[in-house]
């Protein structure tokens, strides 16, 4: 079980709602895939018309599955990036490169109880959690907050699962988050995955209710993180300057011109791509650097962060 990249083939693709596409991916050569854990993600290399995208998607297949990986991809409105490519161009039989599964959102094995709060497509990591908890017999509850017309979209993966509640924005259907958080016993762990505003709200309420920080876990997603105004970056070691477009990240621009940069999550969480910033002012959008490190202005995570001033100089 040693390797870095996988060549996958699209075995099935179908729309489960107007904005959601479900993909089933198998090894292109018919071999077995590496098993993966609950909460794992798969990074796909998507060769779009304008450029290459590397997007990470939560695996919703059962943990340990070796025959196929499954993901659900939401079409990001006005996207010209990876999600548009998957929705408009990818078809059954196409071949994709991918990294081996990574995991930045694994369930905590010592938890007495797992409380999951999902916003819309943020349910995807929890679909693999449910299969894991069913095997281990863990105590859990899943609360899905979504639009009323989306309430049945995920039924195929929730069938037969107890302790799943669906909430939407109408009287009698809203989730009372403060009451839910206040009622949890010692040993509970809270996981939240949804739009940034919902994540922030849940995290604030949990802190206010006295939840220990090590019992609260959040997976950030949303491609809105990486785009912004175009800027320029000078890579001091390589001696090249690169233009970063509106809809690409600094990391993608660095990769586009062939400079090697290490990375893992591509979402500002893991810190693997952290790079010394020699000059310029960064617009930090990561979840990794401490407040003091941001203040000092000597480091940047190029996977999500951008320039506040016109030009950055990186030690790369």
């Amino acid at each position: 079980m040693i390797g870095e990249t996988l060549t996958l083939k699209v075995a099935a693709a179908c729309a489960i709602s107007p904005s959601l596409r479900h993909l089933r991916l198998v090894a292109a050569d018919g071999s077995k895939l590496p098993p993966a854990a609950a909460g794992a993600h798969l990074q796909l290399v998507l060769n779009g018309a304008a450029r290459t995208h590397r997007n990470a998607y939560s695996l919703i297949s059962r943990p340990g599955a070796r025959d196929a990986y499954e993901i659900i991809v939401r079409r990001v409105p006005a996207s010209r990036g990876g999600s548009a490519f998957i929705h408009e161009q990818l078809k059954v039989g196409d071949v994709l490169e991918a990294g081996w599964p990574g995991n930045l959102f694994a369930p905590v094995r010592t938890a007495r109880r797992h409380l999951m709060i999902a916003g819309g497509i943020g349910i995807t990591p929890f679909l693999s959690y449910l299969a894991d908890f069913a095997f281990g017999g863990a105590d859990y509850a899943l609360h899905l907050c979504c639009r009323e017309d989306e309430q049945h979209v995920f039924d195929p993966w929730l069938a037969g699962k107890s302790s799943v509640s669906v909430h939407w924005d109408a009287d009698g259907h809203r989730l009372d988050i403060p009451a839910l958080l206040a009622a949890q016993p010692v040993g509970s762990h809270l996981y939240v995955c949804g739009p940034a505003a919902m994540n922030d709200e849940v995290l604030e309420l949990a802190a206010a209710a006295g939840w220990p920080a090590s019992h609260v876990h959040c997976e950030h997603f949303g491609s809105a993180l990486s785009g912004g105004e175009a800027f320029r970056a000078f890579l001091a070691k390589s001696g090249v300057e690169v233009s970063v477009g509106e809809d690409e990240s600094l990391l993608e621009a660095i990769e586009r011109i062939g400079v090697k940069a290490s990375c893992l999550c591509r979402g500002g969480a893991c810190g693997v791509c952290v790079t010394p910033l020699l000059d310029g002012e960064a617009d930090h959008r990561d979840h990794y650097l401490s407040a003091a490190e941001r203040e000092a202005g000597r480091l940047i995570l190029p996977c999500v962060s951008r320039a506040r001033s016109g030009r950055l100089v990186l030690d790369l």
């Binding site: 079980m1 040693i2 390797g3 870095e4 590496p34 081996w100 990574g102 893992l264 893991c270 810190g271």
Partner: peptide, 12 residues
């Protein structure tokens, strides 16, 4: 420790 927390599946 920081390095090991990032250890990847398939890359012992």
């Amino acid at each position: 420790l920081k390095y090991l927390l990032m250890l990847r599946l398939g890359q012992p």
